[in-house]
Design a protein around this nucleic acid. Structure first.
Lengths: 209, 209, 209, 209
DNA sequence: TATGAATGAGGGTTCATTCAT
DNA sequence: CATGAATGAACCCTCATTCAT
């Protein structure tokens, strides 16, 4: 029976109990690698060395874990994007910085990025995860604004659709989370440089065609 | 999904019983939109107007449905890629054609592409779906070969990593399946043109920086 | 995760599959004797000789089973009460008939009555069971009307609160479901006669006090 | 509830630590309103402003809390009934006094009465709560004796079954605990008077039928 | 006394799959 | 080909209880 007055524990607060962050980190990796639905709470608990029921001492539900992981990433990343914009560089530089920040997240928030890339579509449908779409809209606003400004300045090609260009960048960066291997040969910095180069100048050599 | 590499009874052949193709099409869309794991066989059956048990007269398992959907797409797409290469254009043109074929698939094999983009990582682990990685490797071989050739000819930038460039293109095209709306303002052709432009020449206007 | 588009099976229809009624009858007795919350679906299934999951082929949930049991009783009983009222007897006789019907239900709808008596308070809070209070209100309306009419006719004591009298009768009949034993010495008819006697004339002998 | 007839450590004594009585009072209300099984120890602790684990410094178990609540009520009420009987009134008066004491308990031991009415059947099965049936038997003995005596004296109707009459009275008084509202219009005294009237003289007006 | 982390058993429910009809 | 009843394993979550601090 789902009909129960049920408790109203808090358990959400920011009392960074250490243990909490540890559990969240374990869960984030598993959610990213196996998928949220395909990761069972027992598996998370096993990995943490506790019983599945004990997880509920720390989190209200599996959903709440996902929620906390994504919220942390999105709010931090939005904050960084806003700071870039407020620095008031020219569009060319700003775009470079935004790309830089995006790849930096690949390092800092790898699992959250992966989860978001893989499951945003499914999650966004639920009220609880409404903030995902809000955040996405703000990311787009920021990108579109700077791209348009660059087009007015003549630094970016006029025929380009800013919204399409934004999706282009966003998708290619996000998708890379799937194959990026932190201990591989290719560093984040290396990938970022190559990608930025393509975004800016394309693959064709000067005087190529 | 238990992924039992079990028997491959009769259900395989291309004796398109019509009903079979119809069921597969229903399933493909649901797998793409909701995710394979999140789509239950009952939901597929409901949508088809039959009972879930009846699906098993047409397909061995849910897995088998996914299998058939992906196999159809991959073999057709590989065939098209091979034909492009065998036409023997110059690298610049070949790359254009490959991109064109990729976007054409967005139209022809929308659901299969989406499923593959979303679940390849998870599926590829199972023996049954080993062919996914084989196919991906062949796609990569084709791309890398033509990009290298273009670099030798001086048409593509020398500093570029062909494998990275391949992933870049593959990911940005694949990811677009998530937001592409066939009845929206942006046509596949329009998206393809803009993306090709960026791949080739970047976003910066000539003499921009 | 509770967030799922979830199916919308019907399974509710009146296709009296026999099996369905059988399962419901098993459940009703257990709910009545042990309490709804204390009866597990596994226990019900055990008693029916199937697995717990199989119950969900017939009913959407445990709650739905309770629902069906109670609805059946309440609608049938309301119908009988309405018919009594429509017969247009005098108040004295009508009250007798209502009491008679109440005790008849002790026989016909024993388990449903017990469940209702034991759990109405808890269940009525949930929207799904809102009809319980509606039904109770209608029962009360019927009782209060006939008692008032009898007071006006001078057949029932004037000082009596009709609502209180209704509760009095309702509670004493309902509570008897707890100790009533169909195979015991005391028949429903016997209990009904004694109770009716007390309701009408009290325990004190004529000229007693 | 596991009902382990385990050790009866120290926690029993009446050394009313104040806090203890307070916790018990909180629990009693919750047990009465939501049901024993449906009330979690965490909810009780929440209401008391402590953590659930801390409850176990005061009580051995949830069961022990129920036990203490019921024991308190039953022993006090039995005591009062015995005193009424020992006063040696005539049956007519004694019955009035017993009813009076029953309704007085509605005021004094409201929650305990409710718990007993709602869960006696379930609890009585466990050894630990064997005293419930003992107490009930003694209540019955008292009632039956005075009713029989009244019948011999000619003050109560001869055809009446004393045991049935006892249940009748007991059930209607007990059940009223469910709808009795201490801050409502109807006082305990008022209810008691009306009920006593019905018990004694019925609802029919003198010369009514 | 109180905390807070953990236990362990069990609860309702879901779902791919089987199979007699 | 389709039905519908059943399986059996797994899933998320709950809760009374314990215990080191």
């Amino acid at each position: 029976m789902s009909v129960m007055t049920g408790g109203n524990r808090v358990s959400g607060g920011e009392r960074g109990s250490g243990r909490r962050a540890e559990l969240l980190s374990i869960a984030a990796e598993m959610f990213a690698v196996r998928g949220v639905a395909a990761t069972t709470v027992r598996e998370i608990a096993d990995e943490a060395g506790i019983l599945s029921g004990s997880l509920y001492h720390h989190f209200e539900s599996k959903e709440a874990m996902v929620d906390e992981i994504l919220r942390g990433y999105l709010s931090a990343q939005l904050e960084r994007f806003r700071r870039v914009v407020e620095a008031g560089y020219e569009p060319y530089t700003t775009v470079g910085e935004l790309i830089h920040e995006s790849f930096a997240a690949l390092h800092r928030h790898r699992w959250a990025m992966a989860i978001l890339h893989n499951e945003a579509g499914r999650l966004a449908e639920f009220d609880r995860f409404g903030y995902i779409e809000s955040a996405n809209r703000e990311f787009e606003r920021i990108w579109v604004r700077v791209l348009r400004q660059g087009q007015r300045n003549g630094v970016f090609r006029a025929g380009l659709s800013p919204r399409l260009a934004h999706r282009f960048i966003r998708d290619s960066v996000s998708a890379s989370v799937r194959w990026y291997n932190p201990s591989g040969r290719m560093s984040v910095r290396g990938i970022a440089e190559q990608y930025t180069r393509i975004f800016r100048d394309g693959m064709v050599a000067p005087g190529g065609e």
